[in-house]
Design a protein around this nucleic acid. Structure first.
Lengths: 340, 340
DNA sequence: TTGAAAGCGCTAACAT
DNA sequence: ATGTTAGCGCTTTCAA
């Protein structure tokens, strides 16, 4: 049953029912008596205004899009949950899309999402900027919030980590422990976030009077195979780094697998610091030292930014972007060594 | 720009544009020339039929709902990804909802999803059946596929694991290794899936001439705290089991944490077998013996069932439900002991 | 305080 | 092979 039928059933006008069920009874000064009657009948017959009709009329479907590179990554699934929860109360649904860390898929999905005339979009991009992506985002008819990995040259409100500082913090921790040769396993070589983290690492090295010849970088992607390949390269280098930083949450698994294969003991032979705190981080042997991101807070902030845009599209600009700080979780995968 | 404007722009009827852009050019014998012209113009002006209008007219929004208990659980996020991918090509979007393993939230979300008049719904329930849930599902106006945790008394097509057999397989493995006292850490005590797994365990015990006094069961939920509490109870029992089965993917983390705290070494002091293969399972110390579920295949099957329902609601009944088998991944967390 | 009616963008039945 | 048009369910302006 839809609201017109309900209206006929009650002998009132559709508009009255609409006003009551959309919570505008007060605004239109519907008599308390009528309102009650409508609500009761709606309850009884399980009548809810069809979002399709309402959306069409309003010009907004009451739905936002969420495009992430990998919902399987705890980082993004945690965000997805927080975002859905946050918008639930507003009566706004979340449409999920997963680009599988692939830029082409990402562009395809983004285009579709944009053509769906959603209320807005939270985009956690793969990280590489193409002309197509730039074009799509800048010509978008809906508010877009960038999440996690920013896109240089794209001017949109965003929520991200202070990657440079996080990288610096990580490297400093390793340097302070006496390490002098560092290795970084990154995810996507094109992603700014990883690049910024590496810049932070380099800055820490510099402050310790060390040049970039003390830093090895590898990694061509986020998959298990790519992580393993990168880790292999790092750990079989002639002058093997004594400490590794995994710049992505998944990368550390590759490092662990390879170090086991090469019979390198952590932290005796190799110190390890991994970005992203995971449920299993503390349960590894040894427990992993990690850089934790305030995932929920970031998701919350992204949701808040988008909410503001929905209320008033002009209220938020790229200037309102938020940057969060990572925190070091010291455990036992980093060993103190005599600095040579 | 919408299709009416485009039609005016081209000097053709809206219906023509509609027919071309909905891929029905052939069916309506639109001339190739006109079709080309429309397609080109649509491309140029980035015109896509508004799903809201189309959905309203068709009576279907071109969207399915996906309600999971915890998108943060790799089991469900992997499924979510597979499902979204599968429906992407059909042009059907996926609305994500997370019930946070809470039955009340679940019912609320389910009610909302049902009132959204979606094309269909894939429901991975928390596991407990309430009257409200039963009522909601049976009176639903859209096809619903149950995923993973079934609901007794609810007659809907479903995709699940052969939990009984999986439980039996797990227990047999432990018994064959010489263990005689087993412990199970379950998630939700109300969920059938866990109950069936436990039945399988009991069956294996029985076949080995052992009564249920050889089995300890604990666990009140899926959170870290609940897992730890359950593990603590199991491991501090007077006659502590020599082998534990984690019935949920997360539970094993609780067991690991508690066994470490109690200074129990795995597998020397305690054998461990965990349901669900995780990216980190093989990288634990020792590598974990697990029961792997064919997640992608299950997601694929659920999608296929729902697709069939969308094509013809009558084509699928509860009888078409699919049951998958788990496979044992033998690693090193189970020790062979002298059976007493 | 409530009702009538227009129209959101689209598709499909009907008309030509 | 294409055009005309009704109407999907709703909200909101205008009228009373």
């Amino acid at each position: 049953m839809n609201i017109s039928e309900l209206a006929r059933h009650l002998g009132v006008a559709v508009s009255t029912v609409s006003r009551v069920l959309s919570g505008n009874a007060e605004k239109y000064r519907i008599s308390e008596q009528t309102a009650q009657r409508v609500r009761a009948a709606a309850e009884e017959h399980q009548v809810v205004p069809d979002p399709l009709g309402a959306g069409l009329r309003r010009g907004r479907p009451g739905m936002i899009g969420l495009l992430v590179p990998d919902i399987t990554n705890p980082f993004f699934s945690t965000m997805a949950r927080a975002i859905e929860l946050r918008f639930r109360d507003t009566g706004i649904a979340v449409q999920l899309c997963d680009s599988a860390e692939d830029t082409e898929t990402e562009l395809l999905l983004l285009t579709r999402l944009l053509s769906r005339r959603l209320d807005g979009l939270i985009l956690a991009p793969v990280g590489e900027v193409s002309d197509g992506l730039k074009e799509a985002i800048s010509s978008a008819a809906m508010p877009i919030i960038l999440l996690d990995r920013l896109l240089p040259g794209i001017d949109a409100p965003s929520v991200s980590l202070n990657n440079r500082e996080a990288g610096k913090l990580a490297a400093s921790h390793l340097l302070l422990a006496g390490h002098r040769r560092l290795g970084c396993l990154r995810g996507d070589p094109g992603a700014v976030s990883d690049r910024e983290r590496i810049e932070g690492v380099e800055e820490a090295l510099r402050e310790n009077g060390l040049g970039s010849d003390h830093l090895l970088i590898a990694g061509e992607g986020y998959t298990r195979e790519e992580s393993i390949a990168g880790a292999e390269w790092l750990l079989s280098a002639p002058d093997r780094p004594g400490a590794l930083i995994s710049l992505s949450g998944q990368g550390v698994l590759g490092i662990l697998e390879v170090s086991r294969r090469l019979d390198l003991s952590i932290p005796a032979d190799l110190s390890l610091l991994a970005f992203d705190e995971q449920p299993w981080s503390a349960l590894m042997q040894p427990p992993l030292t990690t850089m934790a991101q305030p995932i929920e807070k970031m998701a919350e902030k992204a949701s808040a930014l988008l909410s503001s845009c929905l209320a008033d599209p002009e209220s938020i600009t790229a200037g309102d972007s938020a940057v969060f700080e990572a925190t070091l979780c010291e455990r036992e995968s980093v060993a103190r060594v005599a600095s040579s």
